[in-house]
């Protein structure tokens, strides 16, 4: 009687344990499958997520290639304000909208536009090569500088600007996310430190141009 009870009891425990093992295997397998589904190696059809994490300690530090094929670092732009936007040329909505908006802001800055360098940094360097960037930035503004580089260089630039991005295979994952956080434009001071952040939908280009001019003016008054 007791033995029979014990046997049944043990059998139940064994069943439960096997259940747990199966569940763990399924979960692990599922997670791995999801991972490979969502995060394939760089290929055609990838899309990218961009998000900001915090404003503290954001700094303009990078080693990249501009759209003319010239190797550049932040030192090439010191002494001028920077208007920085991270995006990628496969992005059909936020990126062209924000870059066109940035172009309007630049035009509205008038003579002071010379003191601001507009930078468009791709987070999809595998596809956004130098010639692609050259053609792309020219469509928005003659002064817009397109920056690309190796995956590592872009990752480093994004890290310093505290931009997070993630790549997903859009072709195989039509349900996958396209792009996070509607593009932020960073206004960086001439010393490469963070000054302000703007978003296209938050204000008119006139208002943003006014705010940028005010920031430039204020910093001059301090000196």
């Amino acid at each position: 009687m007791t033995t029979e009870f014990a046997t049944r009891h043990l059998r139940r425990i064994r069943l439960v344990l096997w259940g747990v093992v199966t569940a763990v295997l399924l979960a692990t397998g599922g997670a791995l499958m999801m991972r490979s589904y969502l995060l394939p190696p760089t290929s055609e059809g990838i899309s990218v997520e961009v998000a900001t994490i915090g404003e503290t300690d954001i700094r303009s530090e990078f080693t990249l290639m501009d759209h003319t094929g010239r190797a550049v670092t932040e030192a090439d732009f010191t002494g001028r304000w920077q208007l920085v936007f991270f995006g990628f040329t496969h992005c059909p909505d936020i990126c062209p909208t924000t870059l066109a908006y940035m172009a309007s802001v630049l035009d509205l800055l008038g003579p002071d536009a010379e003191r601001v360098v507009p930078l468009f940094i791709t987070v999809d360097p595998a596809r956004d090569t130098v010639p692609v960037m050259a053609e792309y930035v020219a469509a928005f503004h003659p002064r817009l500088v397109g920056l690309t580089g190796t995956e590592a260089q872009v990752a480093e630039a994004a890290r310093n600007f505290r931009i997070w991005y993630e790549r997903m295979d859009d072709e195989n994952a039509p349900d996958g996310h396209m792009m996070a956080h509607a593009g932020h434009m960073y206004l960086m001071r001439p010393d490469g430190r963070f000054d302000d952040v703007f978003q296209e939908q938050d204000q008119s280009p006139q208002k943003m141009a006014g705010q940028v001019l005010a920031r430039i003016q204020e910093s001059q008054d301090v000196k």
């Binding site: 909505d93 936020i94 996310h177 396209m178 996070a180 296209e200």
Partner: peptide, 29 residues
């Protein structure tokens, strides 16, 4: 964090104009 997501369908409540606009929804070609 705002993410662009793919929707299989989109509800159109009666009498309510549903807008596709930059920064919101778009039809990706």
């Amino acid at each position: 964090i705002g993410r662009m997501v793919h929707r299989k369908t989109l509800d159109l409540p009666a009498g309510e104009a549903v807008d596709f606009a930059p920064g919101g929804m778009h039809l990706m070609l």
